[in-house]
Amino acid sequence: MTAQDGDNMPKPETDWTTDEVQSSNYNSKALNAIFTSVDINMFSLITNCTSAKSAWDILQRHCEGSETVRRTRLRILTSKFEMMRMEESETVLDYDRRLWEIANEAFSCGDHISNERLVSKVLRSLPEIFNIKICAIDEAKYTSQMAFEDLISSLRTLEMNMDMQKKDKGKTLTFQTAGESFRCCPRCGHNICKNSVCLKSTNSGNSNADEELEPDDEEMTLESVQKLYEDLFEDWTKRNKLNSTLVKENTDLKAVVAKLEVILFKKDVELGHWYFDSGSSRHMTGSREHLIDYVEQNCGRVTYGGGAKGKVVGKGTLNVEGLSKLHNVLHVEGLNSNLISISQLCDDNLLVKFDKHNCEVFDEANM
């Protein structure tokens, strides 16, 4: 809107059209969404903005930089992408994650790395152990149609198979029997082996495999292996029985402890022990004998800390030797403790003082 002196001035809200009111509401909602989504440092940059568009432009320049900055970042990312190689100790999944980090960052700078480009990059940067797979893909002439996710899945399958084969390459054992021996091989099964006189160790990764060990130190017959197994099984049986006994004793002890806790609670009530409770809203007891001026009435229920409820069957004045005559003490059916409410003491204008060892209550006369 233009004033009489030629200066621009805001249009009064009373003169706004329906479209202008709607546009103002949209702007306020968008500006509020931006304000609530940024941290305190970002907010200081846009705190004076009155339109969502101006706030967005400031954040875009701050986070993405100018066109020159974006081109520089894109050149650096392109160089990183071309120089990337999968390490020998790196898994396919880790290499895939590194590729996507660069691809996503390049996309934010305006460069979309195509599926064909990603596939070509992976095939050119794999270690030698994947050469068989690369040759198979090249022979099939399938690279232009292959999806990047399918290539990664295929490489991970090959990687898992190679890891499994490495684990299977273990030692084989030969045991002597009465005239012949047999070899237990995790890859080939059980094969009868003639003329074996002692325990042998075969390592598929060692050219000096089947090296014969010293008979005096490592000779092991089938009978000795069976005897060793029987001894170990007997020891395991004894330990298992002992463990079962200990578990049963532990269960019995827990049951005894639970019974003792119930007895101690009942003793507390019988002996008249009272506890200051900051979580209780009213004085309460489970024993009728502690109260005088008793009035039977149904005052509802009280809720304990664990969620259980107790029925209030009356109330009266506390009459316990050594304690003040507190009024409006609730009689709760089945309550196993005697509780003095800190909250109710304060409501009665009493002063409650705590220190490291004691809790003391004073009236207005400091008595």
Results as ranks from 00 to 15, higher is better:
5 D>T: 02
13 E>Q: 10
18 T>W: 14
19 D>F: 15
29 K>C: 10
43 F>N: 00
47 T>K: 12
52 A>I: 04
65 G>D: 03
68 T>M: 08
70 R>T: 04
71 R>Q: 02
75 R>P: 02
83 M>A: 14
88 E>I: 05
91 T>Q: 04
92 V>F: 03
92 V>H: 01
93 L>M: 08
115 N>F: 15
115 N>Y: 08
123 L>V: 11
136 A>Y: 09
144 S>K: 13
146 M>F: 12
151 L>E: 01
158 L>A: 11
158 L>T: 07
159 E>T: 01
160 M>C: 05
168 D>T: 07
169 K>L: 10
193 C>F: 12
195 N>G: 07
198 C>M: 08
202 T>C: 04
222 L>H: 09
223 E>T: 06
240 N>W: 13
246 L>I: 08
247 V>G: 11
248 K>I: 10
252 D>S: 13
253 L>T: 09
258 A>L: 09
265 F>A: 12
267 K>D: 06
267 K>W: 12
276 F>Q: 05
277 D>W: 07
279 G>F: 07
283 H>T: 00
286 G>E: 00
288 R>L: 12
293 D>H: 15
296 E>W: 08
306 G>Y: 08
306 G>M: 08
306 G>C: 15
308 A>E: 10
318 L>A: 05
320 V>F: 11
324 S>Q: 14
328 N>H: 12
338 N>Y: 09
358 N>K: 06
362 F>C: 04
367 M>S: 07
